[in-house]
C-alpha cells in the first residue's frame, strides 16, 4: 500500500511522514499508534486522498493515488468508510436519516436505502432507535450511528480515527466488538488510537509512528513495545 511515502506540509521543514514503507492486506485489522503529532492523522488522510504524498507512491484499493484523476476521488471514497472521535453526525436529523444520508448523496435509489439502512442499524445494534434524534443518544450510541453511516455502503476499508477517544472504557469495548465484527465481514479496518488497553486486548497488527517515522510493525502486537 505505502511505497516509500514522504509527506511534507507546506512551510514546514520537518516531514509529517518520512519514508513509510508498508503493506496492509485486504481484510486485515491494523492499529495505528503513536503520540499526538506523530503522523497518524496524516497517514489516514493520505489514504483518503485528502492530501497527496510529497514523494513516493501510495496504492489504495488497487489504485495509485498519485495518478488518480481528480474526478475519480469520490469513487475512491465510496470504498472507504470513515469514523471520527467526534462522531460528525448531522444535528436535527434522526438516526435513520443520518445513515441514509450517506447513500442518498451518492445517488442510491430510495428502495435500496429502505432495505440497507435497517440492516446496517441492526448490525450496529441500534434497531428500535431509528427515529431518535442523535442529540438524544449517548456517546456510544452516537458512535454506532457514525459506524453505521461509514459501513452502510459496504466499503472495502474502514478508517477509524480514535473512535473510542470520547467514550468510557466499557462503551469502548462495545465499539471494539462492533469493529471486530465488521472486520470479520472482510472489511479492512485501520484504527488510530491512544487507548493502550484496547490494543493490548485485541492483539492485532500494530504500526507505531514516532515523529513521522514507522518505528514498529508488529503482528499481534501490544501498545507499548
Amino acid at each position: 500500500m505505502f511505497e516509500d511515502v514522504t509527506k511534507f506540509y507546506p512551510g514546514q521543514s520537518r516531514p509529517a511522514l518520512r519514508n513509510i514503507n508498508l503493506e496492509i492486506a485486504k481484510g486485515e485489522f491494523v492499529f495505528l499508534v503513536g503520540q499526538s503529532g506523530s503522523g497518524k492523522s496524516t497517514f489516514l488522510r493520505l489514504i483518503l486522498r485528502e492530501y497527496r504524498p510529497t514523494k513516493g507512491t501510495l496504492y489504495v484499493a488497487g489504485k495509485n493515488l498519485g495518478t488518480l484523476n481528480q474526478w475519480k476521488v469520490p469513487a475512491l471514497r465510496r470504498q472507504i468508510g470513515t469514523v471520527f472521535q467526534d462522531f460528525r453526525l448531522l444535528p436535527g436529523k434522526t438516526v435513520y436519516e443520518n445513515v441514509a444520508f450517506a447513500l442518498q448523496v451518492i445517488g442510491k435509489p430510495t428502495k435500496e436505502i429502505r432495505q440497507v439502512v435497517p440492516e446496517t442499524l441492526e448490525t450496529v445494534g441500534l434497531t428500535g432507535k431509528e427515529d431518535r434524534l442523535n442529540e438524544e443518544l449517548s456517546g456510544g450510541e452516537q458512535q454506532r450511528v457514525a459506524i453505521a453511516r461509514a459501513f452502510v455502503n459496504r466499503p472495502q476499508i474502514l478508517i477509524a480515527d480514535e473512535p473510542t477517544g470520547n467514550l468510557d472504557p466499557e462503551t469502548s469495548v462495545g465499539i471494539m466488538k462492533l469493529l471486530d465484527r465488521i472486520n470479520r465481514t472482510g472489511t479492512t479496518v485501520i484504527m488510530a488510537t491512544h487507548d493502550s488497553s484496547i490494543v493490548d486486548q485485541m492483539r492485532r497488527r500494530v504500526l507505531e509512528l514516532r515523529d513521522g517515522e514507522l518505528v514498529r510493525d508488529q503482528s499481534k502486537g501490544v501498545y507499548g513495545a
Partner: peptide, 17 residues
C-alpha cells in the same frame, strides 16, 4: 459546511454537492 464535509467524505460527486 458539516453536511458538505460528510458528503465529500462518503464520496458524493462535486456536481451533486
Amino acid at each position: 459546511r458539516r453536511e458538505i464535509g460528510i458528503m465529500r467524505l462518503v464520496g458524493a460527486s462535486n456536481l451533486y454537492i
